[in-house]
Simulated assay, not measured.
Amino acid sequence: MVLEGLFAPRRDHKGMSTPSNAARLWLPLCVLAVSFWSWGVTDGNLVVWLCLTTFIVTPVLSVGWYLIGMVSNRYEPKYLIEKAEQAYLNRLARKNQQTH
Rank of each mutant, 00 (worst) to 15 (best):
M1R: 14
V2F: 15
V2N: 13
V2G: 13
L3K: 15
G5P: 10
G5H: 10
L6A: 03
L6T: 12
L6C: 10
F7C: 12
A8S: 15
R10D: 00
R11S: 05
R11W: 03
R11H: 04
D12S: 10
D12G: 09
H13Q: 15
H13I: 07
K14R: 15
K14A: 12
M16Y: 06
M16F: 10
S17D: 07
T18F: 00
T18R: 10
T18V: 15
P19V: 05
P19H: 02
P19L: 05
S20H: 03
N21Q: 11
A22Y: 03
A22C: 09
A23C: 09
A23G: 09
R24Y: 02
L25I: 11
W26E: 01
P28Q: 05
L29Q: 03
V31W: 05
L32A: 13
L32T: 12
L32E: 00
V34N: 01
S35W: 04
S35T: 11
F36L: 08
W37G: 08
S38H: 03
W39R: 02
W39T: 02
W39G: 01
G40D: 04
G40E: 00
G40P: 01
D43C: 08
G44L: 02
G44F: 02
G44R: 04
G44C: 07
N45M: 07
V47M: 11
V47N: 06
V47P: 04
V48L: 11
V48A: 11
V48G: 03
L50S: 08
C51M: 10
C51K: 06
L52Q: 04
L52C: 03
T54M: 04
T54D: 01
F55T: 14
F55S: 04
I56N: 02
I56Y: 02
I56R: 01
V57N: 02
V57Y: 01
P59V: 01
P59C: 01
P59E: 00
P59H: 01
V60L: 10
L61Y: 02
S62A: 15
V63E: 00
V63C: 02
V63W: 07
G64L: 00
G64M: 01
Y66F: 15
Y66W: 12
L67G: 04
V71K: 08
S72C: 06
N73Y: 07
R74N: 13
R74Q: 12
R74C: 11
Y75T: 09
Y75E: 05
Y75I: 10
E76L: 13
E76Y: 07
E76I: 10
P77R: 04
Y79P: 08
L80R: 12
I81V: 13
E82L: 06
K83C: 06
A84Q: 09
E85K: 15
E85P: 08
Q86H: 10
A87T: 14
A87Q: 14
A87W: 08
Y88K: 05
Y88I: 08
L89I: 14
L89V: 13
L89R: 14
L89N: 11
L89H: 09
L92I: 15
L92P: 09
L92A: 04
L92D: 04
A93S: 11
A93H: 11
A93E: 13
R94I: 05
N96E: 13
N96V: 06
N96F: 07
Q97R: 12
Q97T: 06
Q98G: 06
Q98C: 07
H100E: 09
H100L: 11
